[in-house]
Amino acid sequence: MPLLELRNITAGYDRNIILRGFNLEVEKGEFVSLLGSSGCGKTTTLRLIAGFSEPNEGSIIFGGRDITHVPLHRRNFGFVFQSYALFPHMTVFDNVAFGLKMRKVPKAEMRKRVMDMLALVDLEGFEDRYPREMSGGQRQRVALARAMVIQPDLMLFDEPLSNLDAKLRVRMRVEIRRIQQELGFTAIYVTHDQEECFAISDKVAIMNQGVIEQMDTPANIFNGPKTEFIARFVGFENFFDLKAEGGAWLTDSGAPIRLTQRTEGSAVKACIRPEDVLIGPPDAGFENSVPGEVLVSTFLGRHVQYNVRTAIGEFAVKAEQDHVYSIGAQVSLGLIANKIIPIPQTNC
């Protein structure tokens, strides 16, 4: 049985329904990310789980109990805000101790737990500071400690790193993952940063317009997107149609394409990443060869990106810069067979 279950949730206002018939299951100890662009409903989902708002319909089950209408202060979930939401009039110690005070934990035990938690997030000696005297990274670690010290049954993160600079963001996400594995808590993490959520999560749920398009391990999503939306999201830029004829797959222009992935159906949309397309002279003799003409070539440092017009659509190709083709050059593209991902048409 999953630890957390969202069943058939509808949420939003009269004219602006954000979630409709939404379902989600999270297992105990899992680190699950909700990934999507702004407005996809990921933050709404998180706020429903936290209890900041209630769904119009549907139920939220936690540990086998219906908590849909349990008020937030009785849920025992830790929440980490994008804005940190530290209490500006309290010291770091009082911020972290707040949840323990609410639980009437004895003074001595409270002190010990707060200090242990500050040590865990590497903030020993900061307990008497005020939030405004600290940097963004330090504040977010205080927020983390404050949410974790109550030993929550579930940790919720709402884009916690998006106010930090890029370097700190990478350090903090490693930190969060380390602490999560050390303490073994279940976490739901909302972000719009694909790299961040792939790096940190056991499972990623990619959301689009209020529904989860695919929920799987980062590797499975990266290598086997189930829809065109997800394929685009994880870096596939080249899409082309294939149809089955006499046991082989043919492009619209009739060229045979060999796939290594078993694929059902009579027609699929296939996709491939720019870095998995080879480029060479017209007589290069690639497998899955497609002839084309260079439209644009863009220098990207270690790579050169070409936009190539072919009979089955425009292809983006990322190639080593050992041989540079100029605009208008006739080339041949080779689609690496095991890098072509077929997307069943029904899911498009």
């Binding site: 008020p71 202060h73 849920r75 025992n76 929440f79 939401a85 209490f87 707040f98 109550i150």
Partner: peptide, 20 residues
């Protein structure tokens, strides 16, 4: 955010008002 944070840490609305 601040009152929501207080709520998630176990404060009732009244306590969140008085403390925050």
């Amino acid at each position: 955010d601040l009152t929501e944070a207080a709520g998630s840490l176990g404060a009732t609305r009244l306590v969140a008002f008085l403390r925050i």
